[in-house]
Design a protein around this nucleic acid. Sequence first.
DNA 1: TAGCTGTGAATTGTCGACACTTTACCCCAT
DNA 2: ATGGGGTAAAGTGTCGACAATTCACAGCTA
Lengths: 218, 218
Amino acid sequence: MIRIRSEPRRNLAHEIASQMRRDIISGGFKPGEALAEPALAGRFGVSRAPVREAMIELERAGLVQFETTGRTRVRILEEKDVVEIVEARIALESMGARLAAARWTDEDTRWIERSIAAQEKAASGVKFSELDIAMHEYIMKRGGNERLSTLWQFVRWQFEMALTHIHRLQGKMAPDLRRFSVEGHRKVLTALAAGRPDTAAKVMAQHIKDSIEWYSPK
Amino acid sequence: MIRIRSEPRRNLAHEIASQMRRDIISGGFKPGEALAEPALAGRFGVSRAPVREAMIELERAGLVQFETTGRTRVRILEEKDVVEIVEARIALESMGARLAAARWTDEDTRWIERSIAAQEKAASGVKFSELDIAMHEYIMKRGGNERLSTLWQFVRWQFEMALTHIHRLQGKMAPDLRRFSVEGHRKVLTALAAGRPDTAAKVMAQHIKDSIEWYSPK
DNA sequence: TAGCTGTGAATTGTCGACACTTTACCCCAT
DNA sequence: ATGGGGTAAAGTGTCGACAATTCACAGCTA
């Protein structure tokens, strides 16, 4: 297994940040919703100190925004934000794929093949998205650049948050998207397995660009 | 002028984080040095609460690292880290230049030309580096993607921190680097002014790759 | 009814305190 | 000298408190 960070500081703040992150991404907290520290402290059964620290983590991850008055709200994602998130993904993942291609092994190929197989059998759109993201994460980590992976995590969470709303807005995922997306994954794998950095970067960029257009058809 | 964020939350924590960031980048705190909260609180004349919050900001920016025991130390940058930082810069700035090329105006061209002129007249290597970074920052912001700019800021600070040590290690900056670097800037400007996204991305990547090799000659 | 205003309630920013953990150092045995 | 153990000092994680600020809302005015 691949570990990205040595060990995060294990304290209540980090615990709370992780839980809140999951809740925000899954839509448990709605965009624009105010996050008052006393309420959250009560919810988690702690004092305000760890809650405040958790909010800073979430703000840095872009899931939450501070107002000039000090209030904290769940970040609101608009059309423009989704474009930004995808552009950031392309920037980071192109480089990630480029680096990964130079270090790719047969074991990596097998991992991706298993993932693709699972994607094809995924029972739901949500499950498919999880497998999709997990595969992209694997490639990013495989690139071996911890900073790139860390930056990518931030974008990934914002992307997942956006995905939750797109799903809610558009109902079910377009059925063809999955087939189309898997096709893209196969192309990426081919480039990676061939050890072609330039090709891998280009194919990955195209794959991300393609798949997002299924969500927001212009 | 271009603003990236609406307004940061104005509190002591943010103030302290900014000051500490400057001090760490400039080498006032040495890599590996322990940052004890009581000492910092005394130094800034505040309690530990805002100091703790500032530390979280700095950790997210990668300038500081938490140990599993809770202690905070100034991050130590090794050879491998510099490579990672440069790769991250290439990923982000290629995309930044790509986006900027699509929105470039004559006014932007004039801004860069003024910057290049100043670079040629820069009295010291440090001053040159400042102008260099400022120019790269301008292009990033000009890309119009706030997330990309925010991520870039993190990498930028780490890069500046690394630069401080390289300067200290190698003494003065290689005199030819400046001429060489300015040459790269001119190529970037040409691609931007021509409104060629692909070219701008490629030239920017090459420029960053080139300029770093001057620092760490293999 | 619509808009303004004042007042009470809620929230933030910061502080000092305390228990628990980690570190540093001294002393002793070898 | 050197290494181990124990103890004091220092540091972290969390808490509750308080002043200052912001918000919500009822009541008043036009």
